[in-house]
């Protein structure tokens, strides 16, 4: 039986093309505090996350992995090439449809790995973050669960002063 072709020419044609640009709502103290409480549960986070003076004095910074886009973006700039996504493919991390390409017909998705380069510019209350993403590449593999498509995405985050906060790479495994 022949292996399915997981990486199609139309998918390769969109590698390195920006597929999404999002601008966050301004980060709030509460966003940062709730994030720290959630990831440290059941123990308390380090004291500075809970200290109201840290916010007042401007010394409160978000944990580096904090996600200001979790509950949506203030603005999303579209590519103008979008096609509808099959509802059955929602929550599978597909992004190809944003560039007018039908996502691969694979029913499951996992987060295969993350790699982030931090610039040293922290996120603070009031910051507005812009995230721009590209598909950095595709790899096909045979895994325990069958044929697998690995998609590497790269997202660059900048703040309102156009300072780079981080470059975040993720490997999405679809199978």
């Amino acid at each position: 039986m022949s292996e399915p072709i997981l990486i199609r020419p139309d998918m390769l044609a969109i590698v390195n093309q920006p597929y999404g640009r999002q601008i966050s709502y301004p980060i709030t103290e509460s966003d940062i505090r709730k994030w720290a409480l959630a990831v440290h549960h059941p123990e308390s986070p380090p004291a500075h996350y809970l200290d109201p003076r840290a916010a007042e004095t401007g010394t409160l910074t978000a944990p580096p992995e904090f996600n200001p886009f979790a509950w949506g973006a203030a603005r999303t700039e579209h590519t103008g090439k979008e096609i509808p996504l099959d509802p059955a493919r929602r929550n599978l991390g597909a992004m190809e449809h944003l560039l007018g390409v039908v996502p691969p017909d694979l029913p499951h998705a996992l987060n295969g790995g993350i790699s982030t380069a931090y610039s040293g510019v922290p996120m603070r209350p009031g910051d507005v973050i812009t995230a721009e993403s590209v598909i950095a590449g595709y790899t096909a593999k045979q895994g325990r669960l069958g044929p697998m498509l690995l998609t590497e995405t790269a997202t660059t985050w900048t703040n309102q002063r156009d300072e780079t906060v981080k470059v975040h790479r993720m490997t999405l495994i679809r199978y």
Binding site: P64, L110, N111, G112, G113, I114, S115, T116, A117, Y118, G120, T171
Partner: peptide, 10 residues
């Protein structure tokens, strides 16, 4: 100190 790079494979 500060974190400059982190990568994890799941």
């Amino acid at each position: 100190g500060r974190l400059e790079h982190l990568e994890l494979r799941f």
